[in-house]
Amino acid sequence: MILEVAILDIKPEMAGEFEIAFKTASAIIGSMPGYVSHELQRCIEIRNRYILLVRWKSLKDHTVGFRESPEYQKWRSLLHHFYDPFPTVEHYEVVASVSDA
């Protein structure tokens, strides 16, 4: 499994609109092959900063399957105009894991 991580700095006056648009965009990403789960969290200290965490079965599911799809164009049109600056997206793989169970 791959974890996609993006820190999203949203234009301050547009944070509310971004959250609404993200709800629509969530259905798009959630329908993609190889998608596992995602979460969006808002920063406490910087109110217009968010972190997006998306779990994919493979790196290719994100970089090719999603990013080269028509659905990505819909995602882009819904969200990309909110970013300032445009986010860097990184991918991570598990090295160690601990569960509270």
Results as ranks from 00 to 15, higher is better:
V64W: 08
Y35G: 07
E93T: 03
E93N: 01
K23V: 13
P85V: 08
I29N: 05
E4K: 05
V95N: 01
E45H: 08
I28N: 09
L52A: 01
S69Y: 10
Y35N: 09
Y83G: 01
F82K: 00
R76F: 11
R55H: 10
E19S: 04
M14Q: 03
W56G: 04
E39T: 13
F18R: 08
E71C: 04
L79E: 13
M14G: 00
E17L: 12
F22N: 06
L3P: 00
A27K: 02
A101W: 01
S37A: 13
Y50T: 06
I46H: 15
L52Q: 00
K74M: 13
S58M: 06
V89Y: 02
L79S: 12
P87W: 13
Q41S: 04
I10V: 12
V95P: 00
A27M: 01
D100P: 09
G34V: 02
I20R: 14
G34N: 03
G30D: 06
S99V: 04
E93A: 00
V98W: 12
I20Y: 10
A15V: 10
W56R: 04
V5D: 07
N48D: 14
K74Y: 08
A6Y: 10
A96R: 09
R76Y: 12
I7P: 00
I51P: 04
K57L: 07
E17Y: 06
A101I: 10
A27I: 01
L52I: 01
H81A: 13
L59P: 08
T88L: 03
A21Y: 08
K11D: 14
E68I: 01
R76Q: 11
S37G: 09
E90M: 14
L8I: 02
